[in-house]
């Protein structure tokens, strides 16, 4: 009558079928199940509710829940696909998927563009890049005079902003990362390839009969 749910489904309201998630991503079923072990660990670090809050996300990233960071906030907001202020397991796997070594370059380029288009206008504006640079400098204790920041912005936009309208659109970004492929390094997490060996306990908690699928 729908009154009985498995323990995993009850404790993790967003836990989606690993087979279905694997079919939507570059992950194997085993990798999805190993990711669930990671998800359980992060989502129980402050409140054990089967969801990752911003505080838990920051704790996992920085090992320090107090640290406010423009970029981790932005990543969290992009992972929080449904805009609920928390990340459920389905969001977690589908969002991390773009960082999988087997994910397409096109997806990585699109995600990185969206990441840097902080205000969602469809353009990466010079003022936005300046704001990100200042945040980076604050975070790293690196000191740069405003004049030096402007010089870096001039040089970057000279190369990236082909039509000289003061902002970078998607096609300009595509061209720019093509010339500077190292900018996409942050978009690939080799850990995702080794996730089953990092979290071997997934085998004991598997809900799938044939985990080799």
């Amino acid at each position: 009558m729908g009154c009985f749910q498995s323990v995993a489904t009850k404790q993790f309201p967003g836990r989606e079928d690993p087979v279905a998630l694997a079919s939507q991503t570059a992950c194997s079923v085993s990798e999805v199940e190993a990711l669930f072990e990671l998800f359980k660990s992060i989502s129980s670090s402050v409140i054990d509710d089967g969801l990752i809050s911003k505080e838990e996300f920051q704790l996992a990233l920085f090992k320090n829940r107090k640290k406010e960071n423009l970029f981790s906030n932005r990543i969290f907001d992009l992972f929080d696909v449904k805009g609920k202020g928390v990340i459920d397991f389905g969001d977690f796997v589908r969002s991390l998927n773009v960082f999988h070594p087997n994910a397409s370059q096109e997806d990585k380029i699109n995600f990185s563009f969206t990441l840097y288009d902080m205000d969602g206008t469809g353009y990466i504006e010079r003022q936005e890049v300046k704001q990100m640079l200042i945040a980076l400098l604050c975070e790293s204790d690196m000191k740069l005079a405003d004049e030096a920041i402007e010089t870096i912005l001039d040089k970057t936009f000279l190369e990236a902003d082909i039509n000289r309208d003061g902002k970078i659109d998607r096609s300009e970004w595509l061209n720019f990362v093509g010339k500077n492929p190292s900018l996409l390094k942050i978009m690939t997490l080799p850990y995702l390839r080794d996730i089953t060996t990092t979290f071997p306990s997934f085998v004991f908690n598997s809900e799938v009969d044939d985990i080799a699928t």
């Binding site: 990671l38 990233l61 981790s72 980076l136 870096i152 970057t156 900018l183 850990y191």
Partner: peptide, 26 residues
Amino acid sequence: AAPVPMNAFELISKSQGLNLSSLFEK
């Protein structure tokens, strides 16, 4: 001191907040 990269995004990509590898460190 190391030279400062002249590409703004190269600098930004060094942010710890963009380094998701640390999610996997136990």
